[in-house]
Design a protein around this nucleic acid. Structure first.
Lengths: 363, 363
DNA sequence: TTGAAAGCGCTAACAA
DNA sequence: TTGTTAGCGCTTTCAA
């Protein structure tokens, strides 16, 4: 590897001068000297050693991201938002998969500290606040959470209670009252919040709350399939089912079709995430849009502020969610004339909300 | 940040001794001294500064991965394979998205060099060999490619020519001869190879090769939809279509259904990747299984060897591909009795191959 | 068995 | 305008 010393020697100047040229230092450098240095740098294809620089400046221009699993498209898109914002600011991103194991999260924090990450972003839950905060030590002042966190870290999040609320609201408006909810594991705060919002909405709209209509399953195709399969076997079957994500909703559709029931006439289905496939599935799937990329991006921007030593403007940065209505809930959706009208009908959840009173204030 | 000096002072030993204890140096350390050091390390929650260590040892235990886009599930799963193998060996992974832009790839290489990455893995194409190799400088001896590369780097790959070949073979066995191929952009070697395999197979099976049956499109739902839409408008329409990935295949299904044609009776569809959704779609999609996670894992393992200074056992490590047959090609697939039988019928492509002669040896 | 000191490649305070 | 030098936190050689 070429070092600054070799450049200096070849250019017949001191290493200080090379450093000054390369860093556009305010310290004056003679124009011809500067050119000479630049020429030599190019000739030797010299690149400064970021490790040495970081050691001295005490900032590595690297941040860490701790997520459950990068191969989960939900997190992959959040990460992409983080990376793009990081790139723009000159940061590199170190990704750690936790597979939702608390000890791996702690382990990752230690690694990040060793590599002197300038900050860290957590997404996807399973935090043991106290352990985590103490494991972070001084890193904890440069940490951002995407989602809910019981501790004292700045966060970027969507209102999951509200998201579940508008899902129910949409179904109630279509005349449903026997609404089931297939959730992920409620040790995730996201899932817990959605459950809360679901129940609040049932109360608000005077729908019966049946215990057997609230079940939990793996957030996968087969998880959704299995849970809905057994839901449909109950003597009282739901007329609508809200699934915790779109993968589960796709699984649900398979189960409902196998039971020879019609969607949405016999059973309506709502998903979460609004992945692109929702509009290509048959039936197309009504889903709650979650701005994943934007969440990641905002988290990174917030983190940059934190690293710069600025206090966050707000403790929690909220993002709005919308419901995208499609065939899986709206009977006759997609019939010729209506397509263009409805495809664009991205109903603003917040605005609808203004017209109703919900039982519990949304933040 | 706590440094080794503080530990040394508190433990009343030299920094050398602390270092020796922490690195399990072969140099003898008195048992009581060792315990004292360990105790102090714990008390102060000291973590060695990896930056300083790297600077000295000239290895950062970090590798770079350059891919088109982490939010593309195809690459996300490769990356997960890389990360898991990296974790096991104590490496961190820096991910760079190129969005298939050559200048961003070069830019990423420079960044990786600055951060003193110990090695680099490329996946997803658009390489300009000479520029890339020279940009890497000495890094080029510790670089692995996933996929094809015209230069001289060790690679981990699947045989895309063969993959396309077995797709055609499967269709021919079902009686098709009017077979179309919707490919991605052929500046990707993967796509170029598949096209080659497709054409070889047509020749081999005496199918007519119609120019208008080979088209290119974006590797997305809408890309597949649009291309198939226009394919079906041609006077001679294909009886089977091979799509470059499953997303495109899902889009194709929508286009075919909208044309009021039956799948597979009027038009059969084959995808690539075999994402989980293939078996949940209606119809379920016949697809070529690609071992993404394994590719990533193998690439990382190979890179570790390279970093250790060992020459790779083989210049190219090949992975096999299989075709998973489902409703989108097999008429009557999924009729009650057959389900369990066929769902498990993961036909080994290689074995089938043994029974036929293909026009060009597969390595 | 322990420690002093050199030095990895760089920046910045200070000197010339 | 240029250069000398200290030192970031660590490992390792050499000396004790």
């Amino acid at each position: 590897m070429v070092t600054i010393l070799e450049v200096a020697r070849k250019a017949k100047v001191s290493i200080t001068t090379v450093s000054r040229v390369l860093n556009n230092s305010s310290h004056k450098v003679n124009k011809r000297t500067r050119e000479q240095v630049l020429k030599t740098v190019k000739e030797l294809d010299y690149r400064p050693n970021a490790l040495a620089k970081s050691l001295l400046k005490k900032c590595s221009m690297t941040i860490g991201v701790i997520i459950p699993d990068i191969s989960n498209p939900y997190y992959a898109e959040i990460v992409r938002g983080i990376q793009d914002a990081a790139d723009r600011a000159g940061y590199s991103v170190l990704i750690q998969n936790s597979d939702l194991k608390a000890e791996r999260i702690i382990q990752s924090v230690y690694e990040l500290r060793e590599k002197h990450a300038d900050g860290v972003i957590f997404a996807g839950g399973v935090f043991h606040e106290n352990n985590l905060i103490s494991a972070m030590k001084n890193l904890s002042s440069r940490a951002v959470v995407i989602g809910r966190f019981e501790g004292d870290l700045p966060a970027v999040r969507i209102d999951n209670e509200y998201a579940a609320f508008i899902a129910v609201q949409h179904l109630v408006e279509l005349g449903h009252s026997k609404i089931a909810f297939v959730n992920g594991a409620t040790d995730s705060s996201t899932m817990a919040d959605r459950l809360q919002g679901f129940m609040n909405a049932l109360v608000h709209f005077n729908c019966p709350l049946r215990k057997e209509f609230v079940v939990m399953g793996a957030l996968t195709l087969s998880g959704g399939y299995a849970q809905v399969k057994s839901l449909l076997k109950k003597k009282q079957r739901p007329s609508a089912i809200i699934m915790a994500n779109d993968q589960m909703a796709f699984g649900a559709v398979k189960a409902i079709k196998e039971a020879k029931l019609l969607i949405p006439e016999d059973v309506a289905v709502v998903g979460f995430d609004n992945v692109p496939l929702c509009s290509y599935f048959e039936p197309s799937i009504t889903s709650i849009e979650i701005p994943r990329y934007n969440l990641g991006q905002a988290a990174m921007e917030l983190l940059i502020e934190l690293i710069a030593g600025n206090a966050p403007k707000e403790k929690i940065r909220w993002f709005r969610v919308d419901i995208i209505k499609r065939q899986s809930t709206v009977p006759g959706f997609g019939i010729r004339e209506k397509i263009s009208l409805l495809e664009n009908d991205i109903v603003s959840g917040r605005e609808i909300l203004k017209t109703v009173t919900i039982p519990k204030p949304v933040h």
